[in-house]
Amino acid sequence: MEITLQAVLAQVMLGLNNGVFYALLSLGLAVIFGLLNIVNFAHGALYMLGAFVALLGYSYLGPLIGMPDFQMNYWAALVVVPLVVGGLGILLERTLLRRLYKVDHLYGLLLTFGVALIIQGFFTNYFNVSGTPYDAKPEILNGVVNLGFMVFPKYRLWAIVVSLAVCFGTWFVIERTKLGAYLRAGTENPDLVRAFGINVPLMVTLTYGYGVALAAFAGVVAAPIYSVSPVMGAEMIIVVFAVVVIGGMGSIMGAIVSGLLLGMVEGLTKVVYPPASGTVIFLIMVLVLLVKPAGLFGREN
């Protein structure tokens, strides 16, 4: 088989497109793990929920509230859905997760795993597992762009750009601002940050809400690309956990960079040896664990 540069670049671009979703999700996981010490297994389900809330807002909300013509458009969904799902995350943290901070991390993982199954089960009960299309893609993002080496769907390019902007915006806030300094300090020594007069429990709640909002945002951006299905999160979360392990648990830049790189590696594998494309990330995870157990960007303790 001949491998052309064009085929490689095309798969790298498609891989990057998957990579930005890995990056958005593993970034949320990293932020949550850093401050809460909880492995948020519900992350995939909340990503799926983001896509579903966008779908429901577009196709089902109007008739439900007696305004059959009302449809929540894509742009509104980009803002409203993360707020709604993030709010749900805040509720989840306040009512359930908060009770588990004093016990082993494992309980947080089990609880969020349970929450994931409940959310997924709920939607599986009402929606087709094979997926429902989300047709709210705005007119302006239809069509293709000529990148020189390939013609690329406009929407996918938009998905890459907007996701990268959100990822690096989040990185900037955490690494370069006062608010981020509280977050970094709270990750290291929450008791001392409290003793400096900062309301750490509130910070924890809002951080969880933000991490969840990131997942929901990824869900909305992904909805027009993949069909919206109750299992879309479960498929995604396994890969994203591998990405987080490779990047290094709790490392912000590690989560972003390894998300993007691994998406591209996956794309490249589709050119070189397609059957391995679903496995290559896990292979890399095993290698990284053997050589650098704290992950590529993680700090050994």
Binding site: R184, T187, N189, R194, A195, F196, N199, V200
Partner: peptide, 21 residues
């Protein structure tokens, strides 16, 4: 704790508590 601190207490812990990040 954060409300107590805001009443005007400065706390310097034994292990110094300098943040490495």
């Amino acid at each position: 704790t954060h409300r107590i601190a805001r009443l005007g207490i400065g706390y310097c812990p034994e292990e110094r508590g300098i943040f490495s990040s």
